[in-house]
Design a protein around this nucleic acid. Structure first.
Lengths: 153, 153
DNA sequence: CTATTCCGTACTAGGTTGGTCCTAATTTAG
DNA sequence: CTAAATTAGGACCAACCTAGTACGGAATAG
């Protein structure tokens, strides 16, 4: 089983390419060429990332995209959440009142805890750490861990 | 985004029902009624779980299914792996030589680490802990953590 | 004004998922 | 020995979701 969708995977790649050059503003087409991904798909991804507040888009001629915040302040969890929606292990961990099994399903409360662990794992890694030279710390910096409770439903 | 497929979710429910009464042997139909899930689907799940060595099936009249091992020695990761296949965050974390982006994709090595964290999180919880009275320990018992490297691809 | 670029939305082909069903193999009961 | 019950292992199909494309509209620089 693959956890991330292909689009979410691409989204992280695209965001990482933006994080590599924080101050430049690059057009969707140029970024697609750089990341070697289909142009239309990258455009779609950037729109989703802009909607999620990860990147900032400038319209018009000489427009383009840029990272909305510092790369170290953007977690991988935020990127995938902007594309695939909120992260949850099971259906009932996302929209809570939707499952009529709630009354007799004994596993539900336990999933909650697992959900948090997975969410924290993704939230603990920032875009800066995904860069080629980025370190993957056992004890992540504070600004990355802060986002964990924002993702946990 | 939902990480577990509905079938994997059901699989854990079914396995948990078996774990609740370790010594009884129950038929697929009876278990489906107990778990309030479609009979045919439960039968399919049990076949997959038997193939993965989680449950043991006895054929013939008075046949049925039973947990193959102690509930405390079966991790949630094993159950979902038996149904959905090996757990991986991205495509390239499962079948490694399949991605031609390997040469220039800088995110790949970092996914590996995230992959391990998620796999460990699922491997750290045993079926016994998913039972109604089961405790979710911060430091899981040794027999549950052992399975983590079996899942990590 | 015009060219360029982002924005929003609609659309489609393909694959995966959830679910059913059928046949063969195996075991017990009578 | 025969019949019933049950697992084992497929094939099979409809429904949904995913990935990718396309088009019209809005904003901005020159």
């Amino acid at each position: 089983m693959i956890i991330l969708s292909k689009l979410a995977d691409y989204g992280v790649i695209v965001a990482t390419h933006l994080a590599a050059h924080p101050e430049r503003q690059i057009t969707a087409a140029a970024l697609a060429a750089e990341a070697r991904l289909p142009r239309a798909t990258v455009a779609k991804l950037l729109k989703a990332l802009a909607h999620g507040g990860i990147v900032a888009g400038a319209r018009g001629a000489t427009g383009g995209y840029r990272l909305a915040r510092a790369a170290s302040a953007i977690s991988v969890a935020e990127v995938v959440a902007a594309i695939d929606g909120a992260i949850g292990v099971t259906q009932c961990s996302i929209h809570e009142p939707g499952c009529e099994r709630t009354t007799y399903c004994s596993t539900r409360p336990h999933w909650r805890r697992i959900n948090d662990v997975v969410g924290t794992a993704l939230a603990a890694v920032s875009l800066a750490e995904m860069l080629p030279g980025g370190l993957f710390l056992a004890n992540p910096p504070i600004e990355a861990t802060k986002t964990s409770e924002a993702i946990a439903s």
